[in-house]
Design a protein around this nucleic acid. Structure first.
Length: 430
RNA sequence: GUGAAAGUAGCUCAGUUUGGAUAGAGCAUUGGAUUGUGGUUCCAAGGGUCGCGGGUUCGAAUCCCGUCUUUCACCCCA
Protein backbone atom coordinates (compact mmCIF):
# COMPACT_ATOMS: atom_id res chain seq x y z
CA UNK A 1 0.00 0.00 0.00
CA UNK A 2 1.40 3.31 -1.14
CA UNK A 3 1.10 6.20 1.30
CA UNK A 4 1.55 9.68 -0.16
CA UNK A 5 3.16 12.59 1.68
CA UNK A 6 0.73 14.80 3.59
CA UNK A 7 -0.59 17.93 1.86
CA UNK A 8 1.70 20.90 2.16
CA UNK A 9 4.70 18.97 3.52
CA UNK A 10 8.09 18.34 1.96
CA UNK A 11 10.41 15.34 1.87
CA UNK A 12 14.04 16.29 2.25
CA UNK A 13 16.11 13.94 0.10
CA UNK A 14 19.88 14.43 0.52
CA UNK A 15 20.00 17.15 -2.16
CA UNK A 16 17.19 19.15 -0.50
CA UNK A 17 18.55 18.45 2.97
CA UNK A 18 21.89 19.91 1.92
CA UNK A 19 20.15 23.14 0.89
CA UNK A 20 18.05 23.27 4.04
CA UNK A 21 21.12 22.76 6.20
CA UNK A 22 22.92 25.48 4.29
CA UNK A 23 20.12 27.98 4.80
CA UNK A 24 19.73 27.18 8.49
CA UNK A 25 23.48 27.25 9.07
CA UNK A 26 23.58 30.68 7.44
CA UNK A 27 20.81 31.94 9.70
CA UNK A 28 22.61 30.68 12.79
CA UNK A 29 25.96 32.05 11.70
CA UNK A 30 24.53 35.52 11.08
CA UNK A 31 22.56 35.44 14.34
CA UNK A 32 25.68 34.66 16.32
CA UNK A 33 27.84 37.29 14.61
CA UNK A 34 25.12 39.84 15.40
CA UNK A 35 25.23 38.91 19.05
CA UNK A 36 22.16 36.69 19.39
CA UNK A 37 21.92 33.52 21.48
CA UNK A 38 19.93 30.48 20.39
CA UNK A 39 16.88 29.18 22.27
CA UNK A 40 14.09 26.75 21.50
CA UNK A 41 10.86 25.54 23.10
CA UNK A 42 8.51 22.59 22.74
CA UNK A 43 6.91 21.83 19.38
CA UNK A 44 3.44 21.95 20.96
CA UNK A 45 1.91 24.30 23.51
CA UNK A 46 -1.48 24.92 25.09
CA UNK A 47 -3.99 25.95 22.45
CA UNK A 48 -5.08 28.97 24.48
CA UNK A 49 -1.60 30.46 24.21
CA UNK A 50 -2.17 31.17 20.54
CA UNK A 51 -5.50 32.88 21.19
CA UNK A 52 -4.00 35.56 23.44
CA UNK A 53 -2.47 37.65 20.72
CA UNK A 54 -4.12 36.32 17.61
CA UNK A 55 -7.75 35.49 18.29
CA UNK A 56 -10.12 32.80 17.09
CA UNK A 57 -9.47 33.01 13.33
CA UNK A 58 -5.88 32.03 13.86
CA UNK A 59 -6.88 29.05 15.97
CA UNK A 60 -8.77 27.66 12.99
CA UNK A 61 -5.55 27.71 11.02
CA UNK A 62 -3.50 25.59 13.36
CA UNK A 63 -3.12 21.89 14.00
CA UNK A 64 -4.62 21.13 17.38
CA UNK A 65 -4.96 17.94 19.38
CA UNK A 66 -6.18 16.71 22.71
CA UNK A 67 -3.83 14.67 24.85
CA UNK A 68 -4.95 11.74 27.00
CA UNK A 69 -5.37 14.01 29.97
CA UNK A 70 -7.84 16.13 28.04
CA UNK A 71 -5.44 19.05 27.54
CA UNK A 72 -6.15 21.13 24.42
CA UNK A 73 -2.82 21.48 22.63
CA UNK A 74 -1.61 22.88 19.33
CA UNK A 75 1.48 22.35 17.20
CA UNK A 76 3.27 25.69 17.21
CA UNK A 77 2.38 27.95 14.26
CA UNK A 78 4.92 30.54 15.47
CA UNK A 79 7.43 30.77 18.26
CA UNK A 80 6.85 34.29 19.60
CA UNK A 81 4.28 33.17 22.23
CA UNK A 82 6.75 30.54 23.43
CA UNK A 83 9.43 33.22 23.61
CA UNK A 84 7.11 35.48 25.60
CA UNK A 85 6.29 32.64 27.99
CA UNK A 86 9.94 31.68 28.45
CA UNK A 87 11.10 35.25 28.95
CA UNK A 88 8.31 36.04 31.41
CA UNK A 89 9.18 32.97 33.48
CA UNK A 90 12.77 34.08 33.99
CA UNK A 91 12.64 37.79 33.30
CA UNK A 92 14.01 38.83 36.67
CA UNK A 93 17.21 36.89 36.27
CA UNK A 94 17.95 37.72 32.62
CA UNK A 95 20.43 40.47 31.85
CA UNK A 96 19.02 42.96 29.34
CA UNK A 97 18.87 43.50 26.51
CA UNK A 98 17.84 39.96 25.67
CA UNK A 99 18.97 39.11 22.14
CA UNK A 100 17.73 35.65 21.25
CA UNK A 101 17.20 33.74 18.03
CA UNK A 102 15.53 30.47 17.07
CA UNK A 103 14.99 28.38 13.94
CA UNK A 104 11.77 26.53 14.79
CA UNK A 105 9.90 24.09 12.58
CA UNK A 106 6.34 25.43 12.39
CA UNK A 107 2.99 24.11 11.16
CA UNK A 108 -0.05 26.02 9.97
CA UNK A 109 -3.19 24.38 8.56
CA UNK A 110 -3.47 26.72 5.60
CA UNK A 111 -4.13 26.01 1.95
CA UNK A 112 -0.69 25.63 0.34
CA UNK A 113 0.30 27.94 -2.51
CA UNK A 114 3.39 29.61 -3.90
CA UNK A 115 5.71 30.47 -1.03
CA UNK A 116 3.43 28.94 1.58
CA UNK A 117 3.36 25.40 2.90
CA UNK A 118 1.86 23.72 5.93
CA UNK A 119 5.20 22.86 7.47
CA UNK A 120 8.23 25.13 7.23
CA UNK A 121 11.21 26.58 9.03
CA UNK A 122 11.35 30.14 10.23
CA UNK A 123 14.29 32.15 11.47
CA UNK A 124 13.23 34.36 14.37
CA UNK A 125 15.28 37.04 16.07
CA UNK A 126 14.03 39.17 18.93
CA UNK A 127 15.46 41.89 21.10
CA UNK A 128 13.74 42.45 24.43
CA UNK A 129 14.30 45.30 26.84
CA UNK A 130 15.22 48.19 24.55
CA UNK A 131 12.94 50.92 23.23
CA UNK A 132 15.23 53.53 21.72
CA UNK A 133 15.21 52.31 18.12
CA UNK A 134 18.68 50.79 18.18
CA UNK A 135 17.14 47.35 18.58
CA UNK A 136 14.77 47.99 15.65
CA UNK A 137 17.70 48.94 13.46
CA UNK A 138 19.66 45.90 14.60
CA UNK A 139 16.80 43.55 13.78
CA UNK A 140 16.57 44.97 10.26
CA UNK A 141 20.34 44.98 9.88
CA UNK A 142 20.63 41.35 10.95
CA UNK A 143 18.02 40.26 8.39
CA UNK A 144 19.82 42.23 5.67
CA UNK A 145 23.21 40.96 6.87
CA UNK A 146 22.03 37.43 6.08
CA UNK A 147 20.40 38.27 2.76
CA UNK A 148 23.51 40.15 1.69
CA UNK A 149 25.73 37.26 2.78
CA UNK A 150 23.94 34.80 0.50
CA UNK A 151 24.48 37.10 -2.47
CA UNK A 152 21.33 39.21 -2.72
CA UNK A 153 21.98 42.84 -3.57
CA UNK A 154 19.97 46.05 -3.32
CA UNK A 155 18.95 45.31 -6.92
CA UNK A 156 17.24 42.12 -5.73
CA UNK A 157 15.64 43.05 -2.45
CA UNK A 158 14.44 46.01 -0.47
CA UNK A 159 13.48 46.54 3.16
CA UNK A 160 10.30 48.57 3.37
CA UNK A 161 10.11 50.28 6.71
CA UNK A 162 7.28 52.12 8.39
CA UNK A 163 5.86 52.68 11.87
CA UNK A 164 2.54 51.83 13.42
CA UNK A 165 3.06 54.63 15.89
CA UNK A 166 3.61 57.10 13.07
CA UNK A 167 0.66 55.76 11.12
CA UNK A 168 -1.61 56.03 14.16
CA UNK A 169 -0.46 59.60 14.83
CA UNK A 170 -0.99 60.68 11.23
CA UNK A 171 -4.41 59.02 10.92
CA UNK A 172 -5.51 60.51 14.23
CA UNK A 173 -4.32 63.92 13.08
CA UNK A 174 -6.38 63.50 9.90
CA UNK A 175 -9.40 62.87 12.11
CA UNK A 176 -9.83 59.09 12.02
CA UNK A 177 -11.40 57.93 15.31
CA UNK A 178 -9.25 55.52 17.35
CA UNK A 179 -11.75 52.64 17.14
CA UNK A 180 -11.51 52.64 13.34
CA UNK A 181 -7.72 52.41 13.20
CA UNK A 182 -7.43 48.61 13.27
CA UNK A 183 -9.87 48.02 10.40
CA UNK A 184 -8.23 50.82 8.43
CA UNK A 185 -4.81 49.17 8.87
CA UNK A 186 -6.17 46.08 7.15
CA UNK A 187 -7.21 48.21 4.16
CA UNK A 188 -3.96 50.19 3.99
CA UNK A 189 -2.03 46.91 4.02
CA UNK A 190 -3.63 46.14 0.62
CA UNK A 191 -2.25 49.22 -1.12
CA UNK A 192 0.67 47.44 -2.76
CA UNK A 193 -1.57 44.57 -3.87
CA UNK A 194 -4.43 46.44 -5.48
CA UNK A 195 -4.58 48.70 -8.54
CA UNK A 196 -4.80 52.38 -7.55
CA UNK A 197 -8.50 52.72 -8.38
CA UNK A 198 -9.51 49.58 -6.54
CA UNK A 199 -7.55 50.71 -3.52
CA UNK A 200 -9.23 54.11 -3.53
CA UNK A 201 -12.59 52.38 -3.70
CA UNK A 202 -12.00 50.21 -0.62
CA UNK A 203 -10.46 53.17 1.17
CA UNK A 204 -13.61 55.19 0.49
CA UNK A 205 -15.64 52.51 2.29
CA UNK A 206 -13.52 52.96 5.42
CA UNK A 207 -13.09 56.72 5.12
CA UNK A 208 -16.26 58.23 3.57
CA UNK A 209 -15.07 61.83 4.05
CA UNK A 210 -13.38 62.68 0.74
CA UNK A 211 -11.10 65.25 2.29
CA UNK A 212 -9.86 62.78 4.89
CA UNK A 213 -9.45 60.05 2.29
CA UNK A 214 -7.33 62.34 0.16
CA UNK A 215 -5.08 63.11 3.12
CA UNK A 216 -4.67 59.37 3.77
CA UNK A 217 -3.77 58.81 0.13
CA UNK A 218 -1.29 61.68 0.17
CA UNK A 219 0.42 60.22 3.21
CA UNK A 220 0.50 56.75 1.68
CA UNK A 221 2.22 58.18 -1.39
CA UNK A 222 5.22 59.46 0.57
CA UNK A 223 8.43 57.49 0.07
CA UNK A 224 10.91 59.22 2.37
CA UNK A 225 10.64 59.91 6.06
CA UNK A 226 11.85 63.47 5.47
CA UNK A 227 8.66 64.19 3.53
CA UNK A 228 6.60 63.26 6.57
CA UNK A 229 8.53 65.79 8.61
CA UNK A 230 7.60 68.48 6.06
CA UNK A 231 3.88 67.75 6.20
CA UNK A 232 3.70 67.04 9.94
CA UNK A 233 3.68 70.72 10.87
CA UNK A 234 3.65 71.24 14.58
CA UNK A 235 2.00 67.99 15.67
CA UNK A 236 4.32 66.73 18.42
CA UNK A 237 2.94 63.15 18.41
CA UNK A 238 3.75 62.81 14.74
CA UNK A 239 7.15 64.48 15.12
CA UNK A 240 8.00 62.12 17.95
CA UNK A 241 7.21 59.10 15.75
CA UNK A 242 9.13 60.68 12.85
CA UNK A 243 12.23 61.09 15.01
CA UNK A 244 12.03 57.39 15.98
CA UNK A 245 11.95 56.32 12.34
CA UNK A 246 14.70 58.76 11.38
CA UNK A 247 16.92 57.33 14.06
CA UNK A 248 16.43 53.83 12.66
CA UNK A 249 17.27 55.00 9.14
CA UNK A 250 20.34 56.84 10.39
CA UNK A 251 21.64 53.73 12.13
CA UNK A 252 21.00 51.55 9.07
CA UNK A 253 22.89 54.11 6.98
CA UNK A 254 25.86 54.06 9.38
CA UNK A 255 25.88 50.28 9.36
CA UNK A 256 26.15 50.25 5.58
CA UNK A 257 22.78 48.91 4.49
CA UNK A 258 21.09 52.23 3.74
CA UNK A 259 20.76 51.43 0.05
CA UNK A 260 18.55 48.45 0.92
CA UNK A 261 16.11 50.50 2.99
CA UNK A 262 13.14 52.65 2.02
CA UNK A 263 10.43 54.34 4.00
CA UNK A 264 7.14 52.87 2.83
CA UNK A 265 3.90 53.73 4.67
CA UNK A 266 2.03 50.94 2.85
CA UNK A 267 3.82 48.38 5.02
CA UNK A 268 1.31 47.90 7.82
CA UNK A 269 1.40 44.14 8.53
CA UNK A 270 -1.64 42.20 9.49
CA UNK A 271 -1.34 41.79 13.18
CA UNK A 272 -2.85 44.21 15.65
CA UNK A 273 -0.10 43.83 18.23
CA UNK A 274 2.59 45.88 16.51
CA UNK A 275 3.19 49.16 18.36
CA UNK A 276 6.08 50.87 16.59
CA UNK A 277 8.43 50.15 13.71
CA UNK A 278 7.15 47.62 11.17
CA UNK A 279 9.07 46.32 8.16
CA UNK A 280 9.06 43.76 5.41
CA UNK A 281 11.75 42.69 2.99
CA UNK A 282 10.47 42.11 -0.54
CA UNK A 283 11.98 41.11 -3.85
CA UNK A 284 12.26 44.27 -5.93
CA UNK A 285 10.18 42.80 -8.74
CA UNK A 286 7.38 42.30 -6.22
CA UNK A 287 6.58 38.85 -7.58
CA UNK A 288 6.87 36.98 -4.31
CA UNK A 289 5.42 37.19 -0.86
CA UNK A 290 7.43 39.04 1.76
CA UNK A 291 10.77 37.35 2.40
CA UNK A 292 10.68 38.42 6.00
CA UNK A 293 8.80 40.79 8.23
CA UNK A 294 8.60 42.03 11.74
CA UNK A 295 8.34 44.98 14.00
CA UNK A 296 8.08 46.35 17.49
CA UNK A 297 5.62 44.77 19.90
CA UNK A 298 5.95 46.60 23.20
CA UNK A 299 2.80 45.16 24.81
CA UNK A 300 3.22 41.48 24.12
CA UNK A 301 5.07 40.42 27.27
CA UNK A 302 2.53 42.27 29.39
CA UNK A 303 -0.31 40.56 27.48
CA UNK A 304 1.28 37.22 28.37
CA UNK A 305 1.16 38.04 32.06
CA UNK A 306 4.61 39.54 32.40
CA UNK A 307 5.97 43.00 33.05
CA UNK A 308 5.61 45.76 30.42
CA UNK A 309 8.94 45.31 28.69
CA UNK A 310 9.48 46.58 25.15
CA UNK A 311 10.43 44.15 22.41
CA UNK A 312 11.11 44.03 18.69
CA UNK A 313 11.83 41.20 16.29
CA UNK A 314 11.36 39.57 12.93
CA UNK A 315 10.70 36.24 11.24
CA UNK A 316 12.00 34.85 7.94
CA UNK A 317 10.53 31.69 6.46
CA UNK A 318 12.51 29.22 4.37
CA UNK A 319 9.90 28.76 1.64
CA UNK A 320 9.87 32.17 -0.07
CA UNK A 321 13.60 32.53 0.55
CA UNK A 322 14.29 29.29 -1.28
CA UNK A 323 12.19 30.35 -4.27
CA UNK A 324 14.05 33.66 -4.50
CA UNK A 325 17.49 32.07 -4.15
CA UNK A 326 16.55 29.49 -6.78
CA UNK A 327 15.45 32.24 -9.19
CA UNK A 328 18.71 34.11 -8.70
CA UNK A 329 20.84 30.97 -9.07
CA UNK A 330 22.05 31.31 -5.48
CA UNK A 331 20.40 28.24 -3.96
CA UNK A 332 22.95 25.60 -4.93
CA UNK A 333 25.71 27.68 -3.38
CA UNK A 334 23.97 27.28 -0.04
CA UNK A 335 23.96 23.48 -0.17
CA UNK A 336 26.21 21.88 2.41
CA UNK A 337 27.54 18.62 1.03
CA UNK A 338 30.41 17.27 3.09
CA UNK A 339 32.73 15.53 0.63
CA UNK A 340 33.78 11.90 0.90
CA UNK A 341 37.50 12.26 1.54
CA UNK A 342 38.76 8.76 0.83
CA UNK A 343 37.62 5.72 -1.07
CA UNK A 344 39.60 2.61 -0.24
CA UNK A 345 40.11 0.02 -2.99
CA UNK A 346 42.17 -3.09 -3.39
CA UNK A 347 43.83 -4.46 -6.49
CA UNK A 348 44.69 -7.92 -5.22
CA UNK A 349 41.92 -10.22 -4.05
CA UNK A 350 43.94 -11.30 -1.00
CA UNK A 351 44.09 -7.73 0.31
CA UNK A 352 40.37 -7.40 1.01
CA UNK A 353 40.87 -7.54 4.78
CA UNK A 354 43.39 -4.69 4.59
CA UNK A 355 40.74 -2.58 2.88
CA UNK A 356 38.44 -2.89 5.90
CA UNK A 357 41.32 -2.27 8.31
CA UNK A 358 42.45 0.85 6.48
CA UNK A 359 38.94 2.28 6.06
CA UNK A 360 38.28 1.84 9.78
CA UNK A 361 41.64 3.41 10.67
CA UNK A 362 40.89 6.47 8.51
CA UNK A 363 37.43 6.83 10.02
CA UNK A 364 38.66 6.54 13.60
CA UNK A 365 41.12 9.36 12.86
CA UNK A 366 38.21 11.64 12.05
CA UNK A 367 38.15 11.46 8.26
CA UNK A 368 35.44 10.10 5.99
CA UNK A 369 36.07 6.91 4.05
CA UNK A 370 34.01 4.42 2.09
CA UNK A 371 34.77 1.26 0.18
CA UNK A 372 32.95 -0.72 -2.47
CA UNK A 373 30.53 -3.44 -1.43
CA UNK A 374 31.12 -5.13 -4.75
CA UNK A 375 33.56 -7.95 -5.21
CA UNK A 376 34.56 -6.67 -8.63
CA UNK A 377 37.95 -5.55 -9.89
CA UNK A 378 39.65 -2.21 -9.40
CA UNK A 379 37.83 -0.71 -12.36
CA UNK A 380 34.46 -1.34 -10.72
CA UNK A 381 35.64 0.01 -7.41
CA UNK A 382 36.86 3.24 -9.01
CA UNK A 383 33.48 3.57 -10.71
CA UNK A 384 31.86 3.41 -7.29
CA UNK A 385 34.31 5.99 -5.99
CA UNK A 386 33.36 8.38 -8.79
CA UNK A 387 29.66 7.77 -8.22
CA UNK A 388 30.10 8.64 -4.55
CA UNK A 389 32.09 11.77 -5.29
CA UNK A 390 35.22 10.67 -3.46
CA UNK A 391 38.07 13.19 -3.41
CA UNK A 392 40.85 10.63 -3.23
CA UNK A 393 41.15 6.93 -3.86
CA UNK A 394 43.53 4.70 -1.97
CA UNK A 395 44.67 1.64 -3.89
CA UNK A 396 46.04 -1.27 -1.91
CA UNK A 397 48.07 -3.31 -4.38
CA UNK A 398 51.43 -4.89 -5.12
CA UNK A 399 53.34 -1.96 -3.56
CA UNK A 400 51.59 -2.68 -0.28
CA UNK A 401 52.57 -6.36 -0.34
CA UNK A 402 56.17 -5.52 -1.18
CA UNK A 403 56.88 -2.27 0.69
CA UNK A 404 53.79 -1.45 2.82
CA UNK A 405 53.03 1.44 0.45
CA UNK A 406 49.63 2.80 -0.54
CA UNK A 407 48.80 4.49 -3.83
CA UNK A 408 46.81 7.69 -3.30
CA UNK A 409 44.98 8.82 -6.40
CA UNK A 410 43.54 12.33 -6.64
CA UNK A 411 40.24 11.83 -8.41
CA UNK A 412 40.04 15.37 -9.78
CA UNK A 413 43.49 15.49 -11.36
CA UNK A 414 44.23 11.79 -11.77
CA UNK A 415 47.64 12.31 -10.15
CA UNK A 416 48.90 9.37 -8.08
CA UNK A 417 51.47 9.22 -5.31
CA UNK A 418 52.84 6.40 -3.18
CA UNK A 419 53.16 6.70 0.55
CA UNK A 420 54.07 4.42 3.42
CA UNK A 421 50.93 3.30 5.24
CA UNK A 422 52.16 4.32 8.71
CA UNK A 423 53.21 7.73 7.44
CA UNK A 424 49.81 8.19 5.79
CA UNK A 425 47.93 7.34 9.00
CA UNK A 426 50.07 9.55 11.22
CA UNK A 427 49.53 12.41 8.79
CA UNK A 428 45.78 11.94 9.23
CA UNK A 429 46.05 12.07 13.01
CA UNK A 430 47.91 15.37 13.12
C1' G B 1 -13.02 27.89 3.53
C1' U B 2 -13.89 29.75 -2.23
C1' G B 3 -12.54 29.43 -7.50
C1' A B 4 -9.56 27.60 -11.77
C1' A B 5 -6.06 24.23 -14.13
C1' A B 6 -3.32 19.76 -13.98
C1' G B 7 -2.06 14.36 -12.55
C1' U B 8 1.08 8.68 -17.77
C1' A B 9 8.22 5.06 -15.39
C1' G B 10 12.48 8.00 -10.07
C1' C B 11 12.55 12.96 -13.27
C1' U B 12 10.98 15.76 -17.91
C1' C B 13 7.34 14.60 -21.26
C1' A B 14 4.67 12.14 -25.99
C1' G B 15 0.08 9.44 -26.64
C1' U B 16 -6.10 11.85 -24.76
C1' U B 17 -8.83 16.09 -29.75
C1' U B 18 -11.42 11.24 -33.09
C1' G B 19 -12.05 5.01 -27.26
C1' G B 20 -9.20 -0.35 -30.26
C1' A B 21 -5.11 -5.35 -29.25
C1' U B 22 1.66 -5.85 -25.84
C1' A B 23 1.32 2.46 -23.32
C1' G B 24 6.59 5.00 -25.77
C1' A B 25 11.13 8.49 -25.64
C1' G B 26 15.18 11.15 -23.28
C1' C B 27 17.59 11.55 -18.64
C1' A B 28 18.42 8.67 -14.22
C1' U B 29 19.17 3.52 -12.14
C1' U B 30 21.22 -1.61 -12.61
C1' G B 31 24.34 -5.17 -15.34
C1' G B 32 28.05 -6.04 -19.17
C1' A B 33 32.18 -4.54 -22.61
C1' U B 34 36.72 -3.67 -18.32
C1' U B 35 40.74 -9.44 -13.28
C1' G B 36 46.01 -2.56 -11.59
C1' U B 37 42.80 2.57 -12.94
C1' G B 38 37.03 6.16 -12.66
C1' G B 39 34.35 10.20 -15.57
C1' U B 40 33.54 9.32 -22.06
C1' U B 41 31.53 5.69 -25.34
C1' C B 42 28.86 1.24 -26.82
C1' C B 43 25.43 -2.94 -25.64
C1' A B 44 21.58 -4.78 -22.57
C1' A B 45 18.11 -4.95 -18.56
C1' G B 46 14.81 -3.50 -14.76
C1' G B 47 11.11 0.00 -13.71
C1' G B 48 3.86 1.62 -15.12
C1' U B 49 -2.95 -1.75 -12.07
C1' C B 50 -1.82 5.77 -17.06
C1' G B 51 -3.32 9.30 -8.96
C1' C B 52 -7.50 6.41 -6.65
C1' G B 53 -12.77 4.69 -6.85
C1' G B 54 -17.15 4.18 -9.60
C1' G B 55 -19.92 4.60 -14.32
C1' U B 56 -20.75 4.29 -19.90
C1' U B 57 -19.00 0.64 -23.64
C1' C B 58 -17.88 -5.51 -26.95
C1' G B 59 -13.48 -2.63 -25.46
C1' A B 60 -11.20 3.16 -21.42
C1' A B 61 -4.66 6.28 -20.30
C1' U B 62 -8.52 8.42 -23.75
C1' C B 63 -15.63 9.75 -22.45
C1' C B 64 -18.74 10.89 -17.63
C1' C B 65 -19.14 11.39 -12.09
C1' G B 66 -16.80 11.41 -7.37
C1' U B 67 -12.38 11.70 -4.56
C1' C B 68 -7.18 12.63 -3.34
C1' U B 69 -2.84 15.32 -4.51
C1' U B 70 -0.23 19.26 -6.94
C1' U B 71 -0.07 24.21 -9.02
C1' C B 72 -2.16 29.19 -9.31
C1' A B 73 -5.38 32.98 -7.43
C1' C B 74 -8.83 34.61 -3.37
C1' C B 75 -9.56 34.59 2.27
C1' C B 76 -5.74 34.91 5.78
C1' C B 77 -0.81 35.75 6.50
C1' A B 78 1.39 35.12 13.21
Amino acid sequence: MKIPPVKGTRDFYPAQMARRNGIIDGWKKVSIRNGFEEYDGPIFEYLTMYQIKSGQEIVEQLFSLQDRGGRELAIRPEITPTLARMVNQTINSLPRPIKWFAVPRLCRAERPQKGRLREFFQWNIDIIGENLGQADAEVIFTALDYLRMVGLTSKDIQAKISSRKLLAAVLTDIGIPPEKLDSLYAVLDKKAKLPAEAFEAVLAEQVPDRNQAKKVLDFMALDAIGQVREVAGTNETIMDAVRDVEKIFAMLEWMGVGEYCRFDPSVVRGLAYYTGMVFEVHDIAGELRAICGGGRYDNLLRDFGGPPIPATGMGMGDVVLEILLQERGLLEKQAIKPPLEYFVTFAEQLLGSDMYRLAAAIRSRGHSANFSYRQGGLSKQLKDATAQGARKCIIIGQEYVERRQLVIKDMATGVQESIDVEQFLSRLSS
